[in-house]
């Protein structure tokens, strides 16, 4: 059950999407979100969908893995769809009791679902193809100028990369604790919401204790390897933009322009 959580999971690989500079990918992701929110009609959504499909194809990530990533937000998607379906004013198609389904409602609901799905998939593509260290490296470099106004950029990126590093470890540990509690008769699957929430306490307490112990040991291990903050630190891989980064960025710029024009035309 817990193995389904794929957030922040990196699939090592050597595709073009993997080799792009993490800064490029971060910028692309922001651009992608902008493009997605500019899209208005079928044609412009089609263009974004094409962009996403190209991204998936190039990255070599299994589409199944991306779909699995949608599971946790299935509820939000359904909720949005239903809200839009019933609460968009316009030409009524069917109505019963206090609910009215409008033609505009169906269209908006469809686009909303499409938008959320593509938003999640697109951003997941970033974490699937970028190692957390590369990602935080990229963020650290992109946000570097903020150091001058005393934003602790290095510390924040270190915190983030360690958090990402420990996600699989802690998931594994949670699984183990749950099995141990189940073996002693704990029941996580029945009862009402309150009872289930209460059943989680015996999982969370040992998990927190162990997380603190791990943090303590990791801190000592890092100090033993001469960690002393970001000052004077060098890198195994220095980020350098390649030709492919400029090309992909230019292509994305083109897509953004196209979508803006299409949206302007109401397509």
């Amino acid at each position: 059950m817990l193995k389904d959580i794929t957030l922040g999971q990196y699939f090592p690989g050597n595709s073009l999407a993997h080799r792009l500079d993490p800064r490029t990918k971060l910028i692309l992701t922001v651009l992608y979100i902008v493009i997605l929110f500019c899209a208005k009609g079928f044609v412009s959504y089609g263009v974004v969908a094409l962009l996403l499909l190209t991204g998936i194809k190039v990255s070599g990530v299994a589409p199944r893995a991306l779909v699995r990533g949608l599971k946790p937000i299935l509820f939000i998607i359904c909720f949005t769809a239903v809200l839009n379906l019933f609460y968009t004013p316009g030409e009524a198609l069917a109505s019963f009791w206090i609910f009215t389904i409008t033609k505009e409602g169906i269209v908006t609901a469809f686009f909303m679902v499409l938008r959320i799905t593509m938003l999640i998939m697109g951003t997941f593509l970033l974490t699937y193809t970028t190692s957390p260290i590369a990602l935080t490296d990229g963020l650290e470099t992109l946000l570097g100028p903020l150091k001058r106004v005393k934003v602790p950029v290095h510390e924040l990126s270190m915190i983030m990369s360690i958090a990402l590093r420990f996600i699989p470890t802690l998931i594994e540990e949670t699984d183990k604790i749950m099995s141990a509690q189940k073996a002693r008769g704990a029941d996580f699957e029945s009862g009402n919401l309150l009872q289930r929430a209460r059943a989680l306490v015996p999982i969370l307490v040992p998990l927190f204790i162990s997380a603190f112990r791990r943090a303590d040991e990791l801190a000592v291990a890092m100090e033993c390897r001469c960690y002393h903050g970001g000052e004077g630190r060098t890198k195994l891989h220095v980020l350098r933009y390649q030709l492919r980064d400029y090309l992909v960025l230019a292509a994305y710029g083109g897509v953004l322009a196209a979508v803006l024009i299409l949206a302007r035309l109401g397509m």
């Binding site: 260290i133 990369s161 890092m222 890198k235």
Partner: peptide, 28 residues
């Protein structure tokens, strides 16, 4: 140390091995 999970900093083997030299400011 004893617990291997609590002393590995990075998500990729080579980046973890590089952690020490990076802290020492060794050239790339």
């Amino acid at each position: 140390f004893q617990n291997p999970d609590n002393q590995i900093v990075a998500n990729v083997v080579e980046e973890d091995v590089a952690f020490g030299p990076e802290n020492l400011g060794v050239a790339t």
